[in-house]
């Protein structure tokens, strides 16, 4: 497996780029790249030349997270002041504005069926679930407090939830917190199942393997990428190699590789059969906040694509060749 640089856009935004995701292809157009930045804008890019397709403004603080609906028609962006704007990708019409107290919106993800939007609830130590038909809050999955701690205890802030991920079958939700634990929920019963341990610093990004709903990957500030058996509660592998915080992780559509972005300014590609980094891209000049593989689908598109965004204001696109 290999990554090859295709295109890089310097100063794609006026400020640090913090969030990236792919909007799946629709019948009318191919998959697009969606990026969010500290400059309070969200931009849409058409691969492979990364032509600017649209620019959405309206946030009052930096955009921390973007998410795309599996249908590719709508997407959501969230800023530091915790407004989530849900918009139509092609027309940029606002569909809904979801509001939460500041500090209570971080990573977001639509479930595979597209019926629910899960939002990592930051200081509220929970995941918020929004219905995508009515745009109403349907559930709050809270991380239970450890036994014996008082409600006023400061340890509540340690469960600050930063990241969230749906399992490919849509039955499980995992969220990563500041103290390094990952909590797994059963969505249908709205029930907390267990914690996964192995990190001791904030878990910034989570992703389930597309081929196996038990396997979960996590990226943490302790500079490790962990691979868990999320059902069996066990740590399968810890992959080291980054020199600093790992800020983002995504898994390739074939499930054979993961890519990570880190504070050490590199993007790495990891071969899961070897559980080791096989390639390091160091084209960014500042920390890399996001990496995203293009989901499969769209007419006549077979090639794998990986995008990365960084504090250096640039966006890079790579060709990913699996085996």
């Amino acid at each position: 497996m290999k990554l090859a640089g295709l295109k890089s856009i310097d100063n794609a935004h006026e400020e640090s780029v913090w969030a990236v995701t792919w909007v799946p292809a629709t019948d009318a157009r191919p998959a697009l790249l969606l990026t969010g930045s500290l400059d309070e804008t969200v931009k849409l890019w058409r691969p492979d030349e990364l032509v600017l397709e649209g620019k959405n403004t309206g946030h009052c603080l930096g955009v921390v997270s973007v998410a795309a609906h599996p249908s590719g028609v709508i997407a959501a962006s969230a800023s530091l002041d915790s407004f989530i704007r849900v918009f139509d990708v092609d027309t940029n019409a606002t569909i809904a504005t979801l509001e939460a107290p500041p500090s209570e919106v971080w990573q977001m993800q639509f479930n595979p069926k597209g019926t629910t939007l899960a939002v990592a609830g930051g200081g509220s130590a929970s995941i918020k679930l929004w219905d995508t038909a009515t745009w109403e809050l349907i559930d709050t999955l809270s991380i239970p407090r450890p036994e014996g701690s008082k409600p006023s205890d400061k340890s509540g802030s340690k469960k600050f939830v930063l990241s969230v991920a749906w399992s490919p079958d849509g039955r499980r939700l995992a969220c990563g917190s500041m103290d390094g634990t990952i909590s797994v929920f059963d969505v249908t019963r709205a029930k907390f199942l267990h914690h996964l341990e192995g990190h001791f610093m904030p878990v910034r990004s989570l992703v389930y393997s597309p081929i196996d709903p038990r396997v979960l990957f996590s990226a943490s500030d302790d500079s490790h990428v962990n691979m868990y058996d999320a059902e069996g509660k066990s740590l399968l592998a810890a992959m080291s190699g980054h020199a600093s915080w790992v800020l983002s992780v995504d898994v390739s559509p074939d499930g054979a590789a993961i890519a990570t972005g880190s504070s050490d300014r590199t993007v790495r590609l990891w071969d899961l059969s070897m559980r080791a980094a096989v390639q390091t891209m160091s084209n960014h000049t500042d920390q890399v906040w996001g990496v995203a593989f293009r989901p499969p689908g769209g007419t006549g598109i077979r090639a794998g694509r990986l995008a990365s965004v960084s504090d250096d204001k640039s966006i890079s696109l790579y060709d990913y060749a699996g085996r």
């Binding site: 192995g198 990190h199 810890a238």
Partner: peptide, 14 residues
């Protein structure tokens, strides 16, 4: 404190 060691020792206990 590395995660590899943590994972290993957790498995060893099992």
């Amino acid at each position: 404190s590395s995660s590899q060691v943590f994972g290993a020792i957790q498995q060893a206990v099992q």
